[in-house]
Computed example of a mutant assay.
Amino acid sequence: MRKRYGGGVESKQSGPIGRPRGFDVDEALERAVLVFWDQGYEGASLANLTDAMGISTTSMYAAFGNKEELFRKALERYTEGPGGYLTRALEEPTARGVATAILAGTVRTTTRPAHPQGCLGVQGALATGDPGRGVRDLLVAWRNNGCSCVRERFQRAVDDGDLPRETDPGLLARYITTLAFGIAVQAASGVGRDELQEMADAALRNWPLS
């Protein structure tokens, strides 16, 4: 069920009109995701966000908290939606399948037509001033958590004999996630999907054999 919030929609010319109308919180949050994804945390102004969300600044604060809290909610939505390929990839039956799905998912998500290029979790706050430190730390933790999940999955692959005993699951996880993050940066720079997929395929040609 989609949530509606009765915080009101204000006219930019004349303030509140009649009885406050509710707005669709989920739809507003989806629009905020796209703004942060496209412009980053510091680049996204309150005016950009509220215009895209179709609500007033007052309503935004009432429904989502401040800008940093809105970003946190947007990152959660991104992780569940466009970034959900990581969770699905971890369910692949082999470690190579996991790595292949992670890289393919990264290429697909960071080059989607009619969507911002790159990855919200990578470019969202690479460079921020002191006011954005909390968001920068949040995204560092987000990226590290993803790497930890991949490491745990590769450790299971070692234990099950799917990867050679001498494999370092932490190093292999860091390799795959670093490559994925690099793909996201290249996508944001305009490198095309086919070229990025070729790079991912090349990286997997030397996959450890059990």
Score class of each variant (00 low, 15 high):
P20V: 04
P20F: 02
R21M: 02
R21C: 01
F23Q: 06
D24G: 10
V25Y: 05
D26K: 03
D26L: 00
R31V: 13
A32R: 02
Q39V: 02
Y41D: 05
D51T: 13
S56V: 01
T58Q: 11
M60W: 05
Y61V: 12
A62K: 05
A63W: 06
F64W: 06
F64L: 01
F64P: 08
N66P: 00
E69Y: 00
E69S: 12
L70M: 03
L70Y: 08
R72T: 02
K73L: 15
Y78K: 10
E80S: 14
Y85N: 05
Y85A: 06
T87K: 15
R88V: 11
R88W: 08
R88E: 13
E91Q: 15
E91H: 13
E91S: 13
P93I: 06
T94Y: 14
R96N: 10
R96C: 03
G97D: 07
V98C: 07
A101R: 10
I102T: 14
L103W: 13
L103T: 14
V107D: 08
R108D: 13
R108Y: 11
T110V: 08
T110E: 03
T110Q: 09
T110Y: 02
P116L: 12
L120A: 12
V122K: 04
V122A: 12
Q123I: 10
G124I: 10
L126R: 08
G129D: 04
G129W: 02
R136C: 02
D137S: 05
L138S: 07
L139W: 07
L139Y: 14
V140N: 03
A141R: 04
W142H: 15
R143E: 12
N145K: 07
G146I: 08
C147W: 10
C149N: 08
V150N: 06
V150Q: 02
R151C: 06
R153W: 05
Q155R: 15
Q155V: 11
